[in-house]
């Protein structure tokens, strides 16, 4: 994929999402969009209409020092082979203590199990997710979620 096309997509997206969100380039065909939680669904819908049709990963990263959890949706396209060369990271920051975010299930049904796993292992509650139950851990699990940084593996 040539640089021109990435920059064209970049410009398109920039004009489409600003000022609600910020877009930046991570590397040759990786773009990052950062937005706030309440604008997340709006931006997601815009991106879906632009042609990004599925989510590859939901990555939640715990930053106990800054008291935030960063949630990244890696999104791309199967239909549009030009867009499928790009992996777009849709990033949002949430409060670590509350750890509630908005589910993007309505926009991309492919997030279903990815968000469930994130809820299970990182303890991020996704509002409006159809099945906010545990996937891997026992259902009555009460301890610190294992992927949080304060969960220590026994040495």
């Amino acid at each position: 994929m040539n640089i021109d096309e990435v920059s064209r997509v970049f410009k398109d997206l920039k004009s489409m999402i600003e000022p609600e969100a910020q877009i930046s380039i991570l590397s040759s065909n990786r773009l990052i969009i950062t937005t706030s939680t309440d604008k997340l669904e709006l931006i997601a819908n815009l991106l879906k209409n632009y042609g990004f049709d599925h989510v590859k990963s939901v990555t939640a990263i715990d930053y106990p020092m800054k008291n935030i959890i960063e949630i990244s949706y890696l999104i791309s396209s199967f239909n549009n082979l030009n867009l499928s060369k790009i992996i777009l990271t849709l990033k949002t920051l949430i409060d670590r203590n509350k750890s509630i975010s908005k589910s993007l299930y309505k926009v991309w049904p492919s997030v279903e199990f990815l968000e469930r796993e994130t809820y299970d292992l990182m303890g991020v509650f996704f509002e409006e997710h159809p099945e906010n139950t545990s996937l891997i851990l026992p259902e009555d699990y009460k301890d610190i979620r294992p992927l949080r940084k304060d969960f220590k593996l026994i040495k």
């Binding site: 049709d53 599925h54 989510v55 590859k56 199967f78 239909n79 082979l81 499928s84 049904p109 492919s110």
Partner: peptide, 17 residues
């Protein structure tokens, strides 16, 4: 596409990804 299927299962549904 909607469910984000990958691999041979996706390609068997006529998506050339």
């Amino acid at each position: 596409i909607r469910l984000g299927i990958v691999g041979p299962n996706l390609r068997a549904s006529n998506v050339k990804y």
